[in-house]
Design a protein around this nucleic acid. Sequence first.
DNA 1: TTGACATATTCCGATATAGGCATATATTTG
DNA 2: CAAATATATGCCTATATCGGAATATGTCAA
Lengths: 121, 121
Amino acid sequence: MARAATTSDAFNAVAEPRRREILTLLVVREHAVSEIVATLRIDQPSVSKHLRVLRDTGLVRMRCQGRQKFYQTNAEAIRPMHDWTATFERYWRHQLMRVKERAEAKASQISASDAANKEKK
Amino acid sequence: MARAATTSDAFNAVAEPRRREILTLLVVREHAVSEIVATLRIDQPSVSKHLRVLRDTGLVRMRCQGRQKFYQTNAEAIRPMHDWTATFERYWRHQLMRVKERAEAKASQISASDAANKEKK
DNA sequence: TTGACATATTCCGATATAGGCATATATTTG
DNA sequence: CAAATATATGCCTATATCGGAATATGTCAA
């Protein structure tokens, strides 16, 4: 079996750096395809293909106006990823605390040896 | 060009559902490979391969003990993803607020028409 | 040393990809 | 209608994948 389709879920769609750029651009305000092409300097067919993936996964919404199509990020669709990563937050907090504790322990050791050196002198 | 390598960054590594399961399992406490195999019901070679990807992206740490190898999630490595998704938080909050506002507007319209109906009667 | 156990790697086949280029499909304008 | 504009799709190639099976590597125990 090959890798899961990019259209299968947000995690796969967002694995592509270009698509992350597009999402970041489109979350502030809607953009026409040509604006995305100009801003991010990506070939138009490539942009259209990325937008297709993002649309299929519900990460962007489209609005037609004349011959232009305006896309905007659907931030709600990113929430599941945020929630998933958030389950790890307490653990990296914990890790950071341990690092800090070790640093402080080391620091106190150093001041202790400083004191010892001082005594030596 | 093909898709970016799963080993290129956390986003790509985490795109695979199995690997997300493994990370969730290993964040609570370290597990030997055989324990992962038993718990998640995945073939041993497959687990080893996923662990390799997770190790290459820094998402897990390994500790050898005899013939066993214990893996544990390095939660810190998930933080960049959390940070990236967090940049969208204010936007989905905003979207939710608008949805709520519309719902309330609609509700007040309904009560208004209810009132009108009442008057009619 | 031999064998049992734990884990990693390799080879295979099928598939989904991303980019580049050409082209098709609207839609507006003259 | 024809030309111009805006976007989407199709075709192609190279590549990275995932799973499965076999096998290699490494470690302990008798």
